[in-house]
Nucleic acid binder design. Structure first.
Length: 580
RNA sequence: GCGGGCGUAGCUCAGUGGUAGAGCGCCACCUUGCCAAGGUGGAUGUCGUGAGUUCGAAUCUCAUCGCCCGCUCCA
């Protein structure tokens, strides 16, 4: 991908930059362009006071790279990173299993996050809450009822509209059609269709018939045969009380339906007790905030971190593991004095960006959105989205949200228990505010793979070209740290020494022994799964070429393909320094 | 959930009503003294699943599951 130079601009701190590499669009897809363009334009408005003309930077740069994504998905399956859940039964939509290498990768990410956020900080404690969640908790948080918007559907355009956002219709005449038939196929329908034609419209009967025919044409099949409106129609003044009409075409919308956004679990002897699978790990933290505080002698500001599974009934899982029904979150709820909330939100953003750098996602590939007023959740005073340039588009990895005292407030009220904090020093009593850096674990794993994936063209002495597929994980994320190979598998001494080296390294890191095929091929196999180092035991190791190189091995580097000679005795220390 | 496209070996795909295929990968043996594809042999499929039409279905029809694109949604 080519990058168009663009000035980064500081918006609130000198050290935080908005990365504005404007993404452009596939010229072939105009419809898509316009949506994306408007979305991007909105982002520019959101991020800048004085904004540059986005259109200047939109050209000639593909925002998506489906071919690259296909290769990544294929590699993931072929080498055992990620499989579709229940694949042999046809697969379960929106669910994925991590294979051997994927599990290592994900574990490395979670372990590193835990180490950095919990173990190496004095002010953050860990917890691990239950997945099954009481309905009461989620009623208080607003997940039951509150966030599930009733939606209506337009039978003509199939558009979905939020019932509470449909504007009132102006007075007119409501036509109800009672059915139609197709003269050639003989197909008929008695489905009714209702449309409101506003009073100011001329020739209402014709307008109503035209739109009804459009509806029945879609229903009966798109053949060219004329359709007839059977049974005529009825007319009454509209709009009727309590009914909603599509503002664009006047069509009567379907009854509002609630969308089930959470997954339920039934249990108890007769299965009539219900609980929800948590839609986020945050709620158990809020509910246990007081217990953690009381049992650990901590003072504000402090945080509680949790990593674990959450579940959402995604309408439309998509983009490989990016949007799944079951996913893992890495969340921190950082409790603080109300005066410190905004400052800490900025500090956490910076902290989290540092983290992404440490796991191998460069700052240039991250986009930070400062979500403007009106687009944030109503309780949030500040929200940053950290987005990554996936091959399928720029998508969110993490949100850093200043949630004020909303969460503790609703649980205090819902549970009827005081969650007020008493500051010994200032003698002040208050409900703590919360800053929440909430990261998607599976998304980050996907970002790690996407970022690491590379195809390198090598040219040998004869000028022959060869493509090397390599995953350039930073060593601390790599599923396998070291490959161990005998130069010749028939040489018993080489094999024995390899096994000895394996025993030395195994307690400290993942290693992989391989003696299959030519040595170069083994190197390439490890490149493809991102193993940063390979150790080869050869004839020098055995001391056959004079004693000088005895007990040394070749260490080969994944990225440069260069080699160096190291003594076996120093191997463990040398590797530990580089893989942690 | 709606509309369009698609589903054949581990992967990428060819095969449009008449014996299930190719390349790569994989396994075994040989060869190989440090960057893949040299030799010999081998395994692999209920053609996504189920029903229907047909003497006969990977191929046609319907349903279903899944994937991709677009809408919609994303606390």
């Amino acid at each position: 991908m080519r990058d168009i130079p663009f000035p980064a601009r500081s918006i609130y701190h000198d050290h935080v930059f908005f990365h504005l590499a404007p993404r452009s669009l596939r010229a072939a897809d105009k419809k898509r362009s316009s949506t994306l363009q408007s979305r991007l334009a909105a982002r520019y408005r959101a991020c800048f006071h004085a904004r540059p003309d986005p259109s200047q930077h939109m050209a000639n740069k593909d925002v998506t790279d489906p071919a690259r994504m296909e290769k990544i998905v294929s590699l993931c399956k072929r080498r055992g990173f990620i499989f579709q859940a229940g694949e042999i039964y046809g697969g379960l939509n929106g669910c994925w299993d991590y294979g051997p290498l994927g599990a290592e990768l994900k574990r490395n990410l979670k372990d590193y996050w835990w180490r950095k956020t919990v173990q190496e900080r004095d002010d953050v404690l860990g917890m691990d809450g239950a997945i099954l969640t009481m309905e009461q908790v989620l009623i208080s948080s607003g997940h039951v009822g509150g966030f599930a918007d009733p939606m209506c559907e337009c039978p003509l355009t199939k558009q979905r509209l939020r019932a509470d956002q449909v504007p009132a219709s102006s007075p007119g005449v409501e036509y109800t059609f009672l059915g139609a038939s197709d003269q050639t196929t003989g197909k008929t329908t008695d489905k009714t269709f209702t449309v409101l034609i506003p009073d100011e419209k001329q020739d209402k009967d014709r307008s109503a018939q035209k739109i009804a025919l459009q509806y029945y044409r879609d229903l009966l099949g798109k053949g060219s045969a004329p359709k007839t409106l059977d049974n005529g129609w009825t007319v009454q003044p509209g709009p009727r009380e309590g009914e909603l009409y599509n503002p664009e075409n006047g069509v009567l919308l379907s009854e509002p339906r609630m969308f089930e956004l959470m997954l339920k679990a039934n249990f108890g002897a007769t299965g009539d007790q219900i609980a929800y699978l948590r839609p986020e790990t945050a709620q158990s933290i809020f509910c246990q905030y007081k217990n953690v505080l009381d049992s650990n002698r901590v003072k504000l500001p402090f945080g509680i971190a949790q990593c674990g599974k959450s579940f959402r009934n995604e309408i439309n899982p998509r983009n490989f593991t990016f949007r799944s029904r079951e996913f893992e979150q890495m969340e921190i709820e950082y409790f603080c004095h109300p005066d410190d909330g905004l400052r800490l939100t900025d500090e956490w953003l910076e902290e989290r960006l540092k983290f992404y750098g440490e796991i191998g996602i460069p700052r240039e590939k991250l986009h930070i959105l400062d979500i403007p007023d009106g687009e944030r959740a109503f309780y949030s005073q500040k929200t940053y989205d950290i987005e990554y340039e996936f091959p399928f588009g720029i998508q969110e990895l993490e949100g850093v949200a200043y949630r004020t005292d909303y969460d503790l407030g609703v649980h205090e009220k819902g549970a009827g228990k005081s969650l007020v904090y008493f500051d010994e020093e200032t003698k002040e009593k208050f409900l703590p505010h919360v800053v929440e850096p909430s990261a998607g674990c599976d998304r980050t794993v996907l970002a790690l793979i996407c970022e690491a994936f590379d195809e390198e063209t090598l040219t040998d002495e004869k000028g022959k070209e060869d493509i090397r597929t390599v995953l350039r994980f930073v060593p601390r994320m790599a599923p396998i740290k070291v490959g161990i190979f005998p130069l010749l598998k028939k040489n018993e001494d080489q094999v024995r020494i390899c096994r000895e080296i394996q025993k030395i390294l195994q307690p400290w890191m993942t290693v992989f022994y391989d003696d299959g095929g030519a040595l170069g091929r083994r190197y390439r196999r490890q490149d493809e799964v991102g193993t940063p180092f390979c150790v080869t035991v050869d004839f020098e190791t055995l001391g056959e070429q004079g004693g000088e190189l005895k007990n040394t091995v070749t260490v080969r580097h994944r990225d440069s393909m260069e080699q160096e000679r190291l003594p076996i005795s120093g191997l463990l220390a040398w590797l530990l320094e580089r893989v942690r």
